[in-house]
Design a protein around this nucleic acid. Structure first.
Lengths: 134, 134
DNA sequence: CTGAAGATGTTATGTTATAACAATTAATAA
DNA sequence: TTATTAATTGTTATAACATAACATCTTCAG
């Protein structure tokens, strides 16, 4: 399937169902939670979910939270950069938010570049307390 | 057991064995790889390794790489900050290095702070190519 | 239409991590 | 020292996360 960055392709049946589950959720979902939610719609095996998730992440429509083994729909606010994505994860209420920032992205590349490292992809996950819980 | 930050406590038998395995390794090790290496020394179950790793991470003597489900001995260069730790992970050769930087740490807190988020702990893992592989 | 690529369905298995409980060892205080 | 408590250990079982391998079906460009 052909597509351009940030112009989401037409999703297949399984991809659509998984994306819908992520969008409906108020927070991160594990692959197995998604599977359970979609059993009633015909999904039966983890691989069906993982394959859809792989594509959604590839298309930039979803993100994987490495520290939680979970997935979220991409929700970065309009106008923000596409470059880097960071997540805040509230240890009290579990809320996850997405932040993206050009300046920070440049800093990050510069920091790594100083050590001769060329950054292609980054995982930034911040744990602490959200405004409401503080 | 009582201890102060960055003054490593006396390690227990299992903790010492696991720490030695991490120090001897040239890269990240999974808990199960560590277990296999230490079977000859009497370890038998994953929990023995995971419990030791938990303590070593708590003491700041080891880090968990979230994106790899693996662990490394802490090796940040002397003189660098203790505050934040980032890792570069070379997709070609697998080399993992540890970076720490005060300015970046402040930026990161500031970025999150702008969204009302108070950062307690951060995971920063950068994928790309190391100098040798570029 | 047809061939190639992508997506799906399915079974089995591999990998990572923790629950629960009993036993032992180490640190502390009376 | 000895009683008390906290930390660590050992063990079995199981939970949670992820992929291998292979057959089939759909899509779509040529």
């Amino acid at each position: 399937m052909e597509h351009f960055p940030h112009t989401p392709p037409n999703l297949t049946k399984n991809q659509s169902m998984v994306m819908a589950a992520l969008l409906k959720a108020n927070g991160p979902l594990s692959a197995y939670t998604i599977l359970d939610q979609l059993r009633s719609k015909g999904l039966r095996a983890p691989l069906q979910v993982y394959r859809a998730l792989d594509k959604l992440v590839e298309y930039g429509m979803a993100h994987r939270l490495e520290s939680m083994n979970a997935f979220v729909a991409c929700r970065h606010p309009d106008g923000e950069s596409e470059s880097m994505v960071a997540f805040t994860i509230c240890e009290s209420c579990g809320e996850v938010t997405e932040i993206s920032n050009d300046g920070f992205d440049r800093q990050l590349h510069k920091l790594a570049g100083g050590a001769g490292f060329n950054v292609k992809k980054s995982t930034v996950e911040l744990f602490g307390q959200c405004e409401a819980c503080a």
